Amino acid sequence: MYRPKSTIEQWRIFQAVVDHGGYAQAAEKLNKSQSSLNHAVAKLQQGLGVALLEVKGRKAYLTPEGEVFLQRSRKLTYGMQELELLADVLASGWEPILRIVVEASLPRQPLYQALSDFSLRSRGCRIHLMEAQPAGCQAVISKQAADMVLASQVDAGVTSLPLLSTVYVPVCAPGHVLTELDEVSALDLDAQLELVLAESKETEEGWEKAEQRWVINHLHDTLSLLRRGVGFSWLPLEAVAPLLEAKILVRLPMTNQALRKRFSHLVLPHSSPPGPAASLLLTLIRQHYTKATT
């Protein structure tokens, strides 16, 4: 069975001697006797069989081996500090992990901003961010398999917060036959292949009227096919705006300027109140989605 030849305290004293330039200076900072520091470092070096410091006059200097051990030891003591802080955090009720599920076609920039702010105050809380289609989101909500879900559909009795209205526009590649029309009607769309961003088991009334349609599970795949001239699709304006500006995709001029919309809802699947980490993230999400609407 392995037994350590050193202690965390010995490494901390070794670092203090280096950082403060000598045993006397370190002893004053640590409020310890100089002899106890000398003893700790001597025992550390003896246990390792390696000279870490050499004293010249009243100053202690690192040996080449000591320079290597200094960097490694800092990681060790920092890791121990993190463990102790984590224990304090968890003891206070702070959640160690938050699971977030986002519906594939909903806007995410405000969420990313909220997560960016949260990372600075997360206190070790880990984030699991996952994507799902509407049916998958509903399954997660019903099973209470996540802490937060951003979804377009909310059942009665589920705790939710309205966030943002998302506009969907019809787009295709520049060379598509639909771009030859000055105005595009619903009948024109019905005759063309539509790429529907959804799961195969989903039926979204009013969104799948084309005679030909492919059901695509991911936004990335939908955009990749569109860029190759395959079909057209109704997609979030936020997601396609950079591609429209770069003229990689074209927004179709609808006869009646028809727009489709979905509303983003923040759903809290659990019946119990959110913990302190979740409450902080909720506040940040609300702030950034509010900014996105103004």
Rank of each mutant, 00 (worst) to 15 (best):
Q113S: 06
G57F: 05
D182M: 04
S119L: 02
L129T: 11
Y78L: 13
D117Y: 01
Q109N: 06
V68D: 10
Q192S: 07
W94C: 00
D182I: 00
E183Y: 12
V171Q: 08
A139Q: 07
G66V: 01
V102P: 08
A91V: 03
L70I: 14
L163E: 07
A139W: 02
E95Y: 00
V68G: 11
D182F: 01
E183T: 15
V68M: 12
E95G: 05
L111E: 11
T63A: 06
A145S: 15
D188A: 15
L189W: 13
V101L: 02
P162E: 00
S152W: 01
R74L: 04
L111T: 06
G66I: 00
S122D: 03
Q113D: 04
L106S: 04
L181M: 01
V169E: 04
L111V: 09
D155R: 15
A156D: 11
T159N: 10
A87W: 11
S185R: 04
V177T: 13
L164D: 05
S92D: 05
K56H: 14
L62F: 10
V149I: 05
A151I: 06
M148A: 10
S116E: 02
Y61K: 06
L70Q: 09
A146Y: 04
G93S: 03
L115H: 08
E82T: 08
V169P: 02
S105M: 14
V149P: 03
T63W: 12
Q192V: 07
Q144F: 05
Q133V: 13
R72S: 07
K59M: 05
T179F: 08
V68F: 04
C172P: 07
D147S: 02
S122C: 09
Q81E: 13
V102C: 13
F69L: 15
V169G: 02
S122H: 06
M148L: 15
I127T: 08
D88S: 13
G57H: 11
G93Q: 03
P110A: 14
A104W: 09
E103H: 04
I100N: 03
Q81S: 07
L181N: 01
S105W: 05
L62T: 06
L62R: 09
C172V: 12
L90Y: 12
A186V: 13
M130R: 15
V102D: 06
